[in-house]
Amino acid sequence: MPTDSRRLPVPEVSHSPELFCSSDPTSLINDDSLRKDGRNPEEIAGIFMQCGTVSQAKGSSFCELHKTKVICSVYGPKDVEQKEDFQMIGKLKCDFKFAPFSCHKRRGHIADLEESELCEVLTQALSSSVCLHRYPKSQIEVYVIVLENNGSALAAAITAASLALADACIEQYDIVAAASVRVFGKENFLRDPTFHEEYFPHQLSKKNDFNNGVVTVALMPTLNQVCGVLSEGCMESSVLQEAIQTCTEEAQNLYAPLRKCLTSNLGDINV
């Protein structure tokens, strides 16, 4: 693996000790049909959102979904880089990064395949909401850092990024709210999964790895348009459709707190 010589050297191969302890992913729900953190399967996680957390940025936001913490800042619109062609529509540049200490496993400084995939999903979800034709010849930069990953990081990142764009006064058709669901068997949809409830195929065997997976949906709540879908794991298509439906409903419910967060932020300015 190529390493960056300018960074602090760490051992090339090292593993988190938690890999070696046994976990039992077959019992995400206990006998009282409660999850490990005491929530009902249907129960959503507590969410906290705040705008204007980074003072130098044009717009910024901080979002907390159970223990998952995401910070996002938006810069621009500014001129496109010299080498790039003239374009009549603006360009949305996103950067999605897990902080090195955010996950159980230490993350490298260079973006891995998972990060670049999530970045692409984030970009595509946001570019359907931003009125890019209003920003010709310019680019808008969105930087997302996951400070602590306790599951549903992508959903929190999309919500935070859209909030930061609104805070930066970038014109959008609608705000984007995202939610994710852990599919656990045909009947159980665990909303806002924690890190231990996320889908790790290596914890499951061939026999019990069916109708298991994670689905994340990004939605524009007032327009009722789905602007991002990402799923993982093998499941029946009817189960997938139902999971998408559950996510859509949950994202719809996020609209009120998002609105409240934005309006309360405006109130501060007036004072």
Binding site: Q124, S231, T248
Partner: peptide
Amino acid sequence: RGHTVGVRKMGGGSLDPESVT
């Protein structure tokens, strides 16, 4: 067998929830 093993929306547009189904 007709099971889905991963779905992703590509492109910068958005879709109706019914059309996703």
